[in-house]
């Protein structure tokens, strides 16, 4: 069992949880994730490690409740416990000093982006973050990200920052020679990442963090396979970060919807 030290609401359905997980905290590097099972009957849910404190033996996760698995996690109060926390999994982020790095986050992708922005800043890059959401309450981690550099906000309804999508603002930076990024990190829903890659010239390294459906997270099942540069990769062990220009987003979007079709995917044996 893994104790929940704290659980706070960041936005509607988005919670930040601090968990006691000594071994994970000691080993974790930016870009890695854990697989969490809230209780004995739960699914295995992959979640990025937003932060870790080896001394305190804790890790931080930021979770958006989208279905039963994530719901159960965000509903575990401080003082409660999660049954399983396995990790840290995946490759750490490849970090170097590029110069100007623009980090683009959409929705809960911002949670995945946060440790990457932190690491990029730590590696000596000048970090600008563009985060977007439907409306003001859905824009998360604004103040936290401000610690690493300028934060630009977009909302679809214009209730905060620029009205429109993150790509609107990114396009402005790309067009401005003084602010043109040397590298881009983009994390969010698949259509957002695809859109970012589409407007980004090939010569700007553009890293995306992919979120296919996973089971074990250790390379055992192949369920997380994605096509990158024409080759099949397992996102849990070969990623989750890949060169955005090489990713087959259409295939990823298709595979992500496998279990939305409950007719096709739930079973009942011995049904009379």
């Amino acid at each position: 069992m893994f104790e929940v030290v704290s659980n706070e609401v960041l936005a509607p359905k988005v919670h930040r949880l601090v968990l006691k997980a000594a071994r994970v905290a000691a080993a974790r590097q930016p870009g890695q994730f854990v697989i969490v099972r809230a209780s004995d009957q739960s699914e295995r849910i992959p979640l990025t490690i937003a932060d870790a404190d080896a001394q305190a033996e804790t890790i931080t996760i930021i979770v958006q409740a989208v279905g039963a698995g994530t719901e159960e996690i965000v509903n575990t109060p401080a003082g409660g416990a999660l049954r399983d926390v396995a990790g840290p999994l995946g490759h750490p982020t490849h970090l170097q000093k590029w110069g100007k790095v623009v980090c683009v986050g959409g929705g809960v992708g911002t949670a995945v982006l946060y440790p990457l922005a932190a690491a990029a800043a730590k590696a000596g890059n000048k970090v600008t973050t563009i985060i977007g959401g439907r409306s003001e309450p859905f824009v998360i981690l604004r103040n936290e990200l401000a610690a690493f550099g300028e934060v630009l906000v977009t909302t679809e309804d214009g209730s905060l920052g620029t009205k429109g999508f993150v790509t609107t603002v990114l396009q402005e930076l790309l067009d401005d020679p003084a602010r043109r990024p040397d590298a881009i990190f983009a994390v969010g829903p698949v259509p957002m990442m695809a859109a970012v890659v589409k407007i980004t010239p090939k010569e700007i390294p553009t890293l995306v963090s992919l979120n296919p459906i996973m089971v074990d997270g250790t390379g055992m099942c192949g369920g997380c396979r994605v096509t990158v540069g024409g080759e099949v990769k397992f996102a849990c062990v070969d990623g989750p970060e890949f060169d955005g220009h090489a990713v087959d987003f259409q295939e990823l979007a298709n595979r992500q919807t496998t279990y939305t079709d409950h007719q096709h995917c739930r079973i009942g044996l011995d049904k009379k």
Binding site: S42, C221, Y259, I267, G268, L269
Partner: peptide
């Protein structure tokens, strides 16, 4: 793994889906 470890064979009783 979905069927055995995650118990998808139990149908509605399990939270893990499997295509069929």
């Amino acid at each position: 793994t979905r069927v055995n470890l995650m118990g998808a064979w139990k149908g509605e009783e399990s939270r893990t889906p499997v295509a069929h």
